[in-house]
């Protein structure tokens, strides 16, 4: 079963002269444990696709399925999209986007609380993930006290906390130097392999493409799979 399946997605902005076809029949799949890259120049429709897959900006046409469950069909939600976002999709952004008034531990625990999970097991789960991502010693700190790389690790821990089948990452290494950027990409690979999560990453960084299992390239709203050469 695919963790994520998108089929024939269409999205148009504006009308008449200002009309822009951002997605033109986009289809893609991501399997559990797979790391997928979305490449493409600015304005190619990558962000529209990501927000569509993230159920934030639903395409007008097409189907999106998560773990075999149809969640969106021709712009109509097949359930509570916010509930699906908090339980089935993890988000990682260019900036870490941690909540500044919560400690590292609380930031990770927050997503569990939003999923109505309370009590000691949420503490243990947050701590376990922070340890797993190498920031276990920073649990009591606030985001502003962490380096950029550490903040992204915490953001990944937050994304992983509810054990979602899919993580969507929007240029997660753009604010990091190459060494830290590569470390984050390798972390995604590790997470995908060990947690069985499908990770879809929008990136411009061609130096880390070896980390990905599948690469898609987007141009003018059309997505095409890039065949890897040996």
């Amino acid at each position: 079963m695919e963790a994520l399946r998108a089929e024939n997605l269409y999205k148009t902005y504006g009308h008449g002269d200002t009309e822009v076809k951002a997605l033109r029949g986009v289809s893609m799949v991501a399997h559990p444990g797979e790391v997928v890259a979305l490449l493409g120049p600015s304005g190619s429709g990558k962000s529209t696709l990501l927000t569509g897959l993230g159920l934030l900006n639903p395409p007008e046409r097409g189907v999106i399925e998560l773990m075999g469950q149809r969640v969106l069909e021709d712009g109509r939600a097949q359930g509570d999209l916010a509930a699906l976002r908090r339980s089935r999709i993890g988000f990682v952004f260019q900036k870490s986007n941690l909540i500044p008034f919560l400690s590292v531990h609380e930031n990770v625990r927050l997503i569990l609380t939003l999923n109505d999970r309370f009590g000691a097991d949420t503490h243990a789960r947050a701590q376990e993930l922070l340890e797993y991502l190498g920031v276990g010693h920073r649990t009591g700190h606030f985001p502003e006290e962490l380096s950029g790389g550490e903040q992204q690790r915490v953001a990944i821990a937050r994304a992983l906390a509810p054990a979602p089948p899919v993580i969507l990452a929007d240029e997660p290494t753009a604010a990091l130097d190459s060494q830290r950027g590569r470390a984050v990409m390798e972390l995604f690979r590790k997470v995908a392999r060990e947690q069985g999560t499908a990770v879809v990453v929008v990136t411009h960084d061609h130096r880390t493409l070896d980390v990905f299992d599948t690469i898609y390239e987007m141009e003018d709203g059309v997505l095409r799979k890039v065949e890897r050469t040996a």
């Binding site: 916010a82 976002r85 909540i99």
Partner: peptide, 13 residues
């Protein structure tokens, strides 16, 4: 605003 947007993106009710 930013924190509220983030909460909503994360699926907060």
């Amino acid at each position: 605003t930013h924190d509220i947007a983030l909460l909503k993106l994360l699926g907060a009710r």
